[in-house]
Amino acid sequence: MQDFAASFFEAFRLVLGLDPGLIEIVLLSLKVSMTAVFIATIIGLPLGAFLAVTRFPGRGIVIVTVTALMGLPPVVVGLVVYMLLSNAGALGPLQLLYTPTAMIIAQTVLVVPIIAALARQTLEDLNGEYRDQLMLFGLGSLARLRTLLWEGRYSLMTALLAGFGRAVAEVGAVIIVGGNINHVTRVMTTAIALETSKGNLALALGLGLILVIIAFAVNALVFLLRAAAERSAYA
């Protein structure tokens, strides 16, 4: 119990002191995970949309696969990305191992299935409701899809937030491909793992608290943006 009190104290000390090391780590965490979610959106949203509105043989298998991949173990993704980016691997010449880019790649792999699977479900449900009406508007298939994406924007935003939550909280993949290098690839989760291994449990928990606060802040920001968007839409 003493540790919990101490960890709150650590968290406050770090936040109030605007510890530059902490700020660097927090910013890198946000940069890596937001970029990963952004790229995963560019890949996952069209994939989900495609699966939602098309019918082809084997579609069920693809959907089950994508949905199952939501449970990809981060360590496995980390290993696979490591083996690809390693100098001994196929993409070794790119020299990306132990860089934030490598971490973005690993997290993107983790997030794409989440966004694709959740977007597929959202858009398929919406399409069931909207299809006839959008046909009656005389929209072609691309315009229909664009309308579905816009109409489902808030549900889809939740899918992106789920992806962000997964990315910013995972440690298994980024510690392997990033290497937890101080000032280069150290993010919140790998810092927490490091402090835990040093036996600095209060500090580790304090960092954990800050991570939760950041996740809360990101979600609150999106919530407020949504509220503002709705207000301006119906003002």
């Binding site: 009406q133 046909m135 009656l136 072609g140 839409a233 119906y234």
Partner: peptide, 21 residues
């Protein structure tokens, strides 16, 4: 072909209104 014959309208049994104003 709804795109070529646009002077056609229909109100469905359960009208679908877009999530807009």
């Amino acid at each position: 072909n709804r795109q070529r014959y646009c002077r056609f309208g229909m109100v469905l049994q359960r009208p679908v209104l877009l999530r807009r104003s």
